[in-house]
Nucleic acid binder design. Structure first.
Length: 510
RNA sequence: GGCGCGUUGGUCAAGGGGUUAAGACGCCUCCCUUUCACGGAGGAGUCACGGGUUCGAUUCCCGUACGUGCUACCA
């Protein structure tokens, strides 16, 4: 390929950005960056009835969070403006008219009621195709059947019409897909798709072809659900710009729901309790919030990573990849043909890996916000850092830092009495009283010194160290969890440690 | 219904005419820790089915089944 690689992601601003959408972005991005190409985002807002306020900005926010920054877009600029299809409206009509001139398209005046009647009739006749195609187009209300002056009269009278592609029967359309290899479509099964709608907006079919050409797209990635309409797009390329100008296509496998089968949808996430959108999406009309990976506590690195290996594998045992590694190792040939079921457990594992792998500075601010939102104030930055380093390997999602680390900030509000009570006796009480004394006199407050004293007293009193350790842990933490006991004591400090032991003693002695 | 695409453990998957069919997630057992994790050591669990081709098929071919996508003036 002599030309610079140019790929595009073409979302419709209709709501939250789905996992599958982000993966499409990712594969586009990886392919482009691997070949030093450009990644373009083109907003496909040709359906005014589905347009949702705020959805476009939301999509860019998601890309931003993921670190998949477009080279050209509505907000990043570029030399192929505008990048919003609604603003390119006049362009499409021109090409639709050109197709009519060439005899590859026609005006159709059929009302939706007429179309419905046509389908009913076909159904009644036992036809297995309900399509508007060469079988029936000569019996419909279009410029193919009408006299030229009749057509003109209708248009002049302002009759609403659409422009349809005229698909010739009995043609075999060969098609080469970067992922699926060679295939062939029979035009007998392809219908006369609407190219230009009554409102003057193009349908997806016309718009992708025209814009991919105008924006010099070299490689086009999209979901597998588009495969059946590929022949229409190929025909359009052939009629309009020439097949040699057509981008290389790659139809990505679908991301399936974890249980049963089928395309993963937002509903599945709600039903099974995991996110499907990249970030929280708030429906502007209902105000309903749909949870996103970000807000649930995922790291963008993990999110990208888990998406990348859903349908792609580099052939080695490696599973954890950074964006840079992905750019280096990605190859379209290694993308699978079959869909992959989404597994939230595995998704969480990736996040855990990235929490362990990344320096805490990468996500410290987010953790701080979580603590703040839970009502923990007076968070000192370096202290939070110490705590995070201590507990990071027991956190899967970011909010786990709170549940795993609250006790570093607040004294326990309750104790695991069931563990302590049965073993509690007078000797234990004496032990902890002298521990308080000795600890009080301790000059250097560090884990080793605390442990030394702790064990020394135990030996003197001839008590079981393990049991005492468990008790001290419950006193300081509230339950049997957390990292090394003495490092906890060191971290929370002398005053806090002593205070907490005394508080606990009051509870257990009584 | 028609057309397209797909099918290696529960899930993600490597592999590809001859292998003990990798690895990961999850699950189970054990070790470490008198805690929870992390980590370590094990374990259970698989080539959808039927025909070919072949000395030999999980791998190649053809069917079948199953799944899934599309079949809108939605993308």
């Amino acid at each position: 390929m002599a030309n610079k690689v140019r790929v595009r992601f073409a979302p419709s601003p209709t709501g939250g950005l789905h996992l599958g959408g982000v993966r499409t972005v990712l594969f586009n991005y990886l392919f482009a960056k691997k070949h030093q190409g450009d990644f373009i985002v083109r907003v496909e807002d040709t359906d005014q009835t589905r347009w949702v306020d705020g959805a476009e900005k939301y999509i860019f926010d998601c890309l931003d969070w993921c670190g998949l920054i477009p080279d050209e877009s509505v907000i990043h600029g570029g030399s192929y403006t505008p990048y919003r299809q609604s603003e390119r409206k006049p362009i499409y009509r021109q090409y639709a008219e050109q197709l009519i001139q060439q005899g590859n398209a026609y005006y159709a005046f059929d009302t939706s009621a007429e179309l419905e009647a046509m389908r009913e009739k076909l159904k009644a006749a036992g036809s297995n195709s309900l399509q508007y195609d060469h079988h029936i187009r000569m019996s419909m209300n279009n410029s193919l059947r009408l006299l030229p002056e009749e057509t003109k009269a209708l248009i002049d009278a302002g009759t609403p019409y659409v422009i349809r592609i005229k698909v010739n029967p009995n043609e075999l359309i060969p098609f080469s897909d970067m992922i699926r290899g060679e295939m062939e479509f029979d035009t007998n099964t392809v219908d006369d798709k609407v190219l230009l709608k009554a409102d003057g907006m193009p349908t997806y079919h016309l718009a992708v072809v025209v814009d991919d050409h105008l924006m010099k797209i070299t490689h086009a990635f999209r979901g597998e659900e588009w495969l059946p309409s590929a022949p229409v797009h190929i025909l359009l390329w052939k009629y309009l710009f020439g097949l040699d100008q057509m981008p290389h296509w790659a139809h990505l496998p679908l991301i399936l729901k974890p249980d049963g089968n089928g395309k993963l949808s937002k509903r599945d996430g709600d039903r099974l309790g995991f996110p499907v959108y990249a970030m929280d999406w708030i429906d502007p009309t209902t105000k309903e919030v749909t949870k996103g990976f970000k807000e649930l506590g995922f790291l963008p690195e993990a999110f990208i990573n888990l998406l990348a290996v859903l349908g792609w594998n580099d052939g080695t045992e490696q599973e954890v990849f950074s964006l840079e590694e992905l750019i280096e190792k990605f190859s379209i040939e290694k993308v699978h043909k079959g869909g992959a079921k989404f597994d939230f457990e595995k998704a969480k594992w990736f996040n855990q890996e990235w929490i362990k792998k990344l320096p805490i500075e990468n996500y410290k601010e987010r953790v701080k916000e979580i603590f703040l939102s839970k009502g923990v104030s007076n968070i000192e930055d370096s202290y939070l850092g110490d705590v995070m380093n201590l507990i990071k390997e027991r956190c899967i999602l970011l909010p786990d830092f709170y549940t795993q680390g609250v006790y570093f900030f607040d004294s326990p509000s309750s104790y695991d009495e069931a563990s302590v009570k049965p073993k509690w006796d007078e000797a234990k009480k004496e032990y902890f009283n002298s521990l308080i004394d000795q600890l009080n006199q301790l000059e250097s407050w560090d884990a080793i010194s605390i442990e030394t004293i702790f064990k020394q007293i135990a030996t003197e009193k001839n008590s079981k160290v393990g049991e005492l350790q468990m008790m001290l842990r419950v006193f300081l933490v509230g339950s049997k969890m957390g990292p090394g006991l003495f490092i906890i004591a060191e971290t929370i400090g002398k005053t806090n440690t002593l205070q907490r032991i005394e508080n606990a003693l009051k509870v257990f002695v009584a």
